[in-house]
Computed example of a mutant assay.
Amino acid sequence: MLGIFKEKLFNAPKELKSPASLSSCTKPKPSNEIVNDFMSSNSSKAFSMCFGNDALLAYSPSNNNSTHQRLFSGLDDIYCVFMGGLHNLSRLNKQYGLSKGTNEAMFITEAYRTLRDRGPYPADQVLIQLEGSFGFLIFDNNHRTVFVASGSDGQIGLYWGVAADGSVVISENLDIIKASCAKSFAPFPTGCMFHSEHGLMNFEHPTRKMKAMPRIDSEGVMCGANFNVDSQSKIQMMPRVGSEANWATWG
């Protein structure tokens, strides 16, 4: 999986970008070079999709050596890449009125679309219902928004970083991220979700803010940041009333 999004679509935390990238022997790469690296390192079944000059998704199906399955879904200009598996998928499909053959990527797409359009059910309450190991990336081309989430068990590792042109790069492939973003990258925090319009949030502790902690690599150089729940903080919650509340309501 690979997602690349220009800054105007994806306003990543400023702590993700490390000044050490400027002096590193490995320089951040431009977006087109990152895509070429991804395509050349994956199977012939890999494909990429460009959405103007602002967003790109690339996907390669699972292979025999994959520990976790990878799935892709596209519906009504909403595109989802899902990795892992949900133990309670059958119950979730029934709850949402979906057919038994609906896989995880299709379910996440349908749940996102339903909650975006019909609310009012907060996103953290949707994700807390997902049982299993998962990581997913959604790009909503209609609304030009990006949504990323990683399960709390940490079995599906996602990474994010900053490319040479300031675009945000997201992938489960650490080698791609390291080669693309130099020192400006970090693991995507587990148990968290990021919405391009609303920022980073822990869906298990939605009333707490996230705190950036400097991340030092094996060379002793600052390398992006880890983001943890700040137990001393509290987010002021807005009352969930009215028909305008929707998926973008983060608490």
Rank of each mutant, 00 (worst) to 15 (best):
S40Q: 15
Q155D: 15
P30M: 13
S41P: 02
N103P: 05
D37A: 03
V162H: 05
A179D: 06
S167R: 09
F185G: 03
Y79Q: 01
N64K: 13
T102W: 08
D230K: 04
N64T: 12
S184N: 08
S231C: 10
R118H: 05
T26S: 13
S184V: 08
S44N: 12
S43W: 06
A248V: 02
F147R: 00
P189Q: 11
A111S: 10
T207A: 15
E204T: 05
C192T: 13
Q125Y: 01
P187S: 14
M201I: 06
D37E: 14
G154F: 09
V162I: 15
E7L: 09
L56A: 02
M237Y: 14
L92W: 04
N53I: 04
L16T: 08
E110W: 06
N103T: 01
C223W: 00
V162E: 05
F107Y: 12
F139P: 03
G161W: 08
F10G: 08
K100T: 11
F38R: 05
P13C: 07
M222W: 09
Q69Y: 07
A58H: 00
S31E: 07
V148C: 01
S62N: 12
N226F: 03
Q232V: 09
T114L: 06
S171V: 00
I177W: 09
P187F: 10
M210V: 07
T114D: 00
F147L: 14
F72H: 11
D165C: 12
L137C: 14
M49V: 10
T190V: 12
V162W: 02
Y96M: 11
S90E: 11
V126K: 02
F82M: 04
N226P: 00
F82G: 10
F136M: 02
V35N: 10
A179E: 07
D124P: 06
V169L: 13
I128L: 07
K100Y: 12
Y112N: 02
P61D: 00
M238F: 09
I177F: 13
I138W: 09
